[in-house]
Computed example of a mutant assay.
Amino acid sequence: MVGHDIGGMVAFAYARRHPREVARLALVELALPGFGLEGAMNAATGGSFHFGLFMTPEVPELLLDGTEPAFLTWWFNRLAHVTAAFPPEEIAAITASYTGREALRAGFGHCRTLLQDGRVNRAWAEIGAHLPMPVLAVGGEHNVGTRLAEALRPIAPHLSAAVIKDSGHFVPDERPEELARDLISFLD
């Protein structure tokens, strides 16, 4: 099972709940609820502002409704180290999915569960649970780096780590060949 960002949070939760169904788990570019995300959320200590904004009911929808193209262009360019990773036509296609208050509300919905997800994940670890399968933690050099691997080390005894050189958050888009190489090696 492979998951990137929010998909990595889902993949982790699935592997945690159904370990016999996951032979190998690869998590790419995320901070995991309960294992480092809370620090990444704290803007007062250098974390990213967007978590608090996106978690607030109704406010981001009010602020961004009608400005989705400008916001998403800024967003993808801010998080990608390789600016060519998201050409304008891709940003336009993504924007089409997030246009209007209801689409924005649905898009921000996952952020509104992150603190509860963290409590659940920490409670699981506090009873001495761990991920029994091999786990690969992948970070982009210019974003997560080794932080995901460091956070997983206490709960993933069969952990490997990879840092993708010259990549930001969007590793699959910025450095697809390098990510594929690491995933194929790990999943083989």
Score class of each variant (00 low, 15 high):
Met1Arg: 07
Val2Leu: 15
Asp5Leu: 12
Gly7Cys: 07
Gly7Ser: 06
Ala11Thr: 08
Ala13Asp: 13
Ala13Gln: 06
Ala13Glu: 10
Tyr14Glu: 06
Ala15Lys: 00
Ala15Ile: 00
Ala15Asn: 03
Val22Tyr: 07
Ala23Arg: 15
Ala23Ser: 14
Ala23Met: 11
Val28Phe: 03
Val28Tyr: 08
Glu29Arg: 03
Glu29Asp: 15
Glu29Trp: 07
Leu30His: 10
Leu32Asn: 08
Pro33Trp: 01
Phe35Met: 15
Phe35Cys: 10
Gly39Arg: 13
Met41Phe: 10
Met41Asp: 05
Asn42Tyr: 00
Asn42Thr: 09
Gly46Leu: 11
Gly46His: 13
Gly46Ser: 12
Gly46Pro: 09
Ser48Leu: 15
Phe49Tyr: 13
Phe51Gln: 04
Thr56His: 05
Pro57Glu: 03
Pro57Lys: 00
Val59Met: 10
Pro60Ile: 04
Pro60Asp: 01
Pro60Cys: 01
Glu61Gly: 12
Leu63Pro: 00
Leu63Met: 13
Leu63Gln: 06
Leu63Ala: 14
Pro69Trp: 04
Thr73Ala: 09
Trp75Tyr: 09
Phe76Glu: 02
Phe76Lys: 01
Phe76Leu: 11
Ala80Val: 04
His81Tyr: 14
His81Asn: 09
Thr83Ser: 14
Phe86Pro: 05
Phe86Gly: 12
Glu89His: 10
Glu90Arg: 15
Glu90Val: 10
Ile91Thr: 15
Ala92His: 05
Ala93Gln: 11
Ala93Asp: 05
Ala93Gly: 04
Ile94Lys: 04
Ile94Tyr: 15
Ser97Glu: 12
Tyr98Gly: 00
Arg101Asp: 02
Ala106Pro: 02
Phe108Cys: 11
His110Arg: 06
Thr113Gln: 07
Gln116Cys: 06
Asp117Ser: 05
Asp117Pro: 01
Arg119Lys: 12
Val120Glu: 15
Asn121Ile: 09
Asn121Phe: 04
Arg122Asp: 02
Ala125Gly: 03
Ala125Phe: 05
Glu126Gln: 15
Ile127His: 15
Gly128Arg: 06
Gly128Gln: 08
Ala129Ser: 14
Met133Asn: 11
Val135Met: 00
Val135Leu: 00
Leu136Thr: 04
Leu136Cys: 02
Val138Asp: 08
Glu141Cys: 14
His142Leu: 07
Asn143Ala: 15
Val144Asp: 06
Arg147Asp: 10
Leu148Met: 09
Leu148Gly: 11
Ala149Cys: 11
Glu150Asn: 14
Arg153Cys: 00
Pro154Ser: 08
Ala156Leu: 02
Pro157Phe: 04
Pro157Val: 00
His158Tyr: 02
Leu159Cys: 03
Leu159Ala: 01
Ser160Leu: 03
Ile164Met: 06
Gly168Asn: 13
Val171Tyr: 05
Glu174Thr: 03
Arg175Thr: 13
Arg175Leu: 04
Pro176Ser: 06
Glu177Tyr: 02
Ala180Glu: 12
Asp182Met: 11
Leu183Lys: 08
